[in-house]
Every structure is written in C-alpha cells, then in structure tokens.
Design a protein around this nucleic acid. Sequence first.
DNA 1: CTGAATCATGCACAATCATGCACAAACGCG
DNA 2: CGCGTTTGTGCATGATTGTGCATGATTCAG
Lengths: 262, 262
Amino acid sequence: MSAAPSDALPEERQREILRRLSSQGRVVAAELAINFAISEDSIRRDLRELAARGLCRRVYGGALPVGQEQLPVSLRRALQVETKLRLASKAASLVRSGQTLLIDAGSTNSAIADALPDRMNLTIVTTAPDIAQRLMDRQGFEILMIGGRIDKRAGATVGAQTALEIRRVRADLCFPGACAIDLDTGVWDVDSEEALIKRAMIESSGETAVVVTTDKFGAIAAHHIATVDQIDHLIAEHDIDATIHAAFEAKSVSVYLADKDR
Amino acid sequence: MSAAPSDALPEERQREILRRLSSQGRVVAAELAINFAISEDSIRRDLRELAARGLCRRVYGGALPVGQEQLPVSLRRALQVETKLRLASKAASLVRSGQTLLIDAGSTNSAIADALPDRMNLTIVTTAPDIAQRLMDRQGFEILMIGGRIDKRAGATVGAQTALEIRRVRADLCFPGACAIDLDTGVWDVDSEEALIKRAMIESSGETAVVVTTDKFGAIAAHHIATVDQIDHLIAEHDIDATIHAAFEAKSVSVYLADKDR
DNA sequence: CTGAATCATGCACAATCATGCACAAACGCG
DNA sequence: CGCGTTTGTGCATGATTGTGCATGATTCAG
C-alpha cells in the first residue's frame, strides 16, 4: 500500500511519520522500525525530535498527533474508525497511476484520500474542503476544489453551481458517499441536494466505486443516487453476506472485501 | 533507466537533478554520484548551489524539493500565534452584521475567521478550504467556497476559474493576505497567481482591509496587489512606527492597532 | 509484585558533510 | 601562439550527524 522505502533519508522518514500520524491518528515505534527497516532506537530518536518540536505527542509504544486529543474508545467504536481505515485502504488499491478521481465528502472518503499513495500523479477533484485540506499537506497530487455553497451537515459544496462545475470535469473513477445500498434499487442518500451532486459525479466519471460499511445494506434513504448497473466497484467489509456478495457480482459489480486486519 | 551521460556538463547535471526532484520527490547524493559517474563532492556542490538558489532543500543524504519543507498547514499555524490572534480580533471588529466577506487564505486570515462573532448573519466567501472547514463547525454563517485548482503553498484555490468565480461575487469587505506593504507602492505578493486572485477579490469588494504583522513593512515582493488608495482599512501591530501610521492616515486609510494584551 | 516491553542515555562506529588545496581543462586576451 | 584567469574536479582533512548496541531505568499488564 503506502510507500515504505527501504532507504529513506532521515528527513523523509520524519515526514512520513507525520503523514501517518495525521492520517492514521497514531504511529507505533516497532511498526515504523520494521517499515523503514531501521532500528527502533532511530525511530525513537525521530519521535523524540518531532515531539520536541511540538509536532507530535510521545506516548509509550509510539506517538500521537498533537492538538486532536484522543477520542474516547467508546466514541471511536461508534464512529467505526478502524473499519473505515480498512475500507479506505482497500478502496485506494483500485486507483491507478495518473488517474483523475472525483471524491465526495464524508468520513470514509476522507480516509480514502488519506490512504491514497504518493507519487502516483493523481488528480483529485473534490467538493469537500476537508479532503482538499488533507491532500494539500502531501506531495504529488493535483487538487481541484469544486466551488459552491457549503452544506455544513455534508461538509461539502452543494447546489447548482457545484453541479455545473462537476459536469465540466471528466474523471476516471469516482467515490460517491452512500447512505444506503440495495441489491435491486441501488444507492440512496438522505439528502436531495447531495444526491443531485452525487449523480453528477457519477455521470462525469468513467467508473464508479461505492464504499460501504455493512450497516448500509438494509438501510433506507429517500433520494436515489444510482442504479446497480451504474456501479462498477463495491468495497465492503469482510463480513457481508456471501449471497449478497455473489448477487452483486452476478450484476457485474466487482466486489472487494476489506482486510480483516491491517 | 533515464539518460545519465557520463560526461554531462555541470549545468545539464543540475537540470537533471531538478527534474528528478520534481518527478521523484527526492534525490540521494550517493545515487546521483553513481548515475553521473562523478564524485559525491561534485554532487554535493551541485546540491549546495541549487539550495542556495532556493531550488531545493538540502538534507542529510541528499535533497528534497522546495515547498516540502513547509510544515502541514495544521502545524504551521502555530507560528506567531499570539500576534495573529490580536490582529485577528481587531480585524473582526470591523465587520458589521449581515455583511458578505471575501476572505483570502493564510494563517492570519484563518485567525480572522475564527475571531468572527456568531449570530451576525455573515456570508463568508473564501478560496481557502481551511477557512471553509473552520467556519463549518460554527452556527450562523453562510459559506461559499470558491472553486479551482489548489495551490498547495498558498493553501487556496488559484487560477483562471477561481478568478472568474470571484468576479461573480459582490462583497462588502475583503481581507486579502499581503506579503509586503509599502507606503508609496501599496501591497505586494511573492506569487503572481495569488496576486491575481487578490486583485480580483479587491475589485469584487466594496471595502478592503489589509492585516499585516510588523515585519511586512520592510519586506519586498515581486507582484503588485493594490495601491494604497485601494485600501480602506489597515490593521497592524501596536508597535508600528508612528510616522508610518500617520502617513497612511494622511492617505485616507483608517489604521487600527491591535491591542497589546488580550 | 513480577516479568516483559519500552525507554533514555552513553558510547563507538559509520556515513555524510564543509573546507582547503592541488591539478587540469577551458577560456580570454594580448 | 603564450600566459594568466576562471571553472570544474577529485582528494585529504577534520567536523558533524546518524546509527546500532549495551546498560540501567521506567512503564505497563496481569
């Protein structure tokens, strides 16, 4: 998945550590040592130095980002953080070098943006300031922000202006967020304006990938986004029903299951 | 892989180094030495020279592209916090209920956005995802995000599309960021594209407020943003020269000094 | 309380670096 | 052509920086 150069310059290493901190919310010294093929001592030195500069917080076993205090575990579970990271990393593996991606707002999509590898010459088009913000800190991305009125609930631009701008773009792959998915009727959203934007995204993209947590199957929402035959890829958790899996495959949707562990 | 003629001229070599920097995101001194069949000393000399010209950043073991040295925006904001907070709160006091504000990117402007009072029915138009993001968490703001290509250094959208969208807006007050300010020539920016955007902002606004730290007064920058008579308000620190203060006032610029303490 | 994991510290060694110097090729100019 | 100058290069030197290991100290889980 992400770059783990066997011979990284010290500076690069620290940069990558910071990146992982902000994208994954934590780093483990032992993992970093293996990843960089270097002794834990050097990793610890890096972490100590970053902490001294106020760029991370040192904790037993690794480090945490500064500022955002750790969420209570109960809240973390409710937000399904781990699950989304797993889905995101699987979703990111669909992306090929040089592609243009259209990325919707949402916490899962933010995670996908974080999971995108550097140095793949990707062009990212997004309606979410959050995603633009995250990718800004990294190299090798061309970022296009779609303008328009901000919908605070969605955390993204919406409305006619936004839809118009999206239609002026041509992307290879898009990741529209979904509130509900159904084998027969397709993908749904709770908000009519957002649904409008998502439909525009799909129409502007060569392929469409839908990333869903298991609770989205069976959920209901009022506004239609896409039919099943408009979906090319479905990324789901490893525990989805085998019959559902097969049924989507039968409708020529490529189904990918997130890894159990990471 | 790529062309690595054993008898490259120094200038050719440096050009190739820059090319690799931008395409690969880094160069390693030892690798370059082998590639060019030349001693590491010469490579180091090249890197030192390029770094002196500001075209790359020298690190232990090699070099990295410029721009990468800047900390993630989330962390950069930590610099000069107190000063900027004081300036920001003074700047925010210029705002009247119901107004439409055009806010540029930059850490000072982010602070201004934070300092804006709730419940004043403000409409905020911005090119900075960061600012959109911050205001999203708060009540009582209508937010308009200006779309376009993202300039990572600036942390904002830039380019023709962005300028076009700005010109479709009419604001009461704008806060363009400034890199340098001079009594005779006005306000300047280091980047030509950003300067273009800022000019558009000013032209789309009834009034213009420039917020500057004291170090901006002696500074120099290449691209003109505005003449002094285009500026309506100047917010500066309390320690600026009294003659400068008076001189701006004489040119009918309202000068506001940030409070010493808060 | 105990054992295992993690940590800071000091130290030795290796890699990388800046600097000065000598030499060679290219260059300008009489 | 001849000769001083400039420029680029490699090498030697000593300084700086990064790294791994050993040693105790500290922290954590059970």
